[in-house]
Design a binder for these strands. Structure first.
Ligand SMILES: [Zn+2]
Ligand SMILES: [Zn+2]
Ligand SMILES: [Zn+2]
Ligand SMILES: [Zn+2]
Lengths: 168, 168
DNA sequence: GCCGATTTGTAATGTTATATCATTTAAATA
DNA sequence: TATTTAAATGATATAACATTACAAATCGGC
């Protein structure tokens, strides 16, 4: 199976059917967890659903509030952090270090490092994965004799749509 | 004046005279602040000195402790955060988002975005700046129609020295 | 010396994340 | 099915990181 590269960031977000998008993530998550013999419990599934409700990164305490509101669940910070840990381990979400926030992964089939574009206007975060950049990163760090095990690549700015909005 | 690229990461760290390195940072900082008509007060200078004492990123509360210990300064969080804000503004330090920590900039002449290699073994963080990677980032984001205004690029792993140590 | 602006001190609070132990629930075994 | 064991969640407390708001001190220019 060839490495599948992600349909590319905001270009893929624009005008997509998000209802369908969210549902698909949840279905995929269920299938993957079954395959991996790990449990996507109701709680974990709900946290994932909340995160995938939009493409904006959400903080743990925002999730906590929504969890509490949504179904009178008595939840405390560890509850949500444990769910987040699970989802991170399973590659179903990513953490955005610059924002202390979490965003869904829409390509969780095979766990991977995520590179992100984050629009400061609309708040959306889009994962991108381009072979050229990966290759350049590899080449650069190789030259420096540095062996990378983990990456945080988070680029902030304006997405194409928001640039147009700005001009109005 | 041609863009000066940084002498390159851990390769530049290895076996360098850090005493001299630290002193030079402080001297440069003093000169820059004078040129810019901003004040490198004793407090700010001391925080910078603490940060540049090593190439390991330090957290705000670690700095706070050291500040308190060092000379019986009565200092509270805002004291250290204000100094950090100043130093960040002047491009004398960088923030490592993944670590909630701060590291000295050893090329502060012209403020810039920093890309970092962070060794998980020795703890050192080294800034690197390679035209090829910058160019690739630019090209990639251009293709996606994304206009970058701020970057967080933090690569974790093992520096060359620590890879050797591992083998022993 | 006086005045306005900048810097620092101080107390309180907000935000993000973890440690610890009890309880519940699900799975495995008998 | 009853019993045992492991996994997950509940609950309380606390640690780690960061900011707000206001008072006091310090610095520069007049
Ligand atoms: Zn979507
Ligand atoms: Zn946008
Ligand atoms: Zn040095
Ligand atoms: Zn190292």
């Amino acid at each position: 199976m060839a490495t599948q590269h992600i349909p590319l960031a905001f270009t893929g977000l624009k005008g997509h059917n998000h209802q369908h998008c969210q549902q698909q993530v949840l279905n995929t998550a269920a299938r993957l967890c079954q395959q991996r013999h790990v449990r996507l419990t109701p709680l974990r599934r709900e946290v994932l659903a909340l995160i995938c409700h939009s493409h904006r990164p959400l903080g743990a305490y925002t999730l906590l509030e929504q969890l509490q509101a949504q179904q009178g669940r008595r939840a405390a910070p560890p509850t949500v952090y444990r769910a987040l840990d699970f989802l991170l381990e399973q590659g179903l979400i990513h953490r955005i270090a610059s924002l202390n926030a979490f965003v869904g992964c829409f390509q969780p089939e095979q766990p991977h490092i995520g590179h992100f574009l984050i629009c400061e206007r609309c708040g959306n975060a889009a994962e991108f994965d381009t072979p050229e950049l990966n290759q350049q990163l590899q080449q650069t760090t190789d030259q420096l004799g540095f062996k990378v095990t983990q990456q945080t690549v988070e680029l902030f700015g304006r997405c194409a749509q928001c640039q147009q909005q700005d001009e109005v």
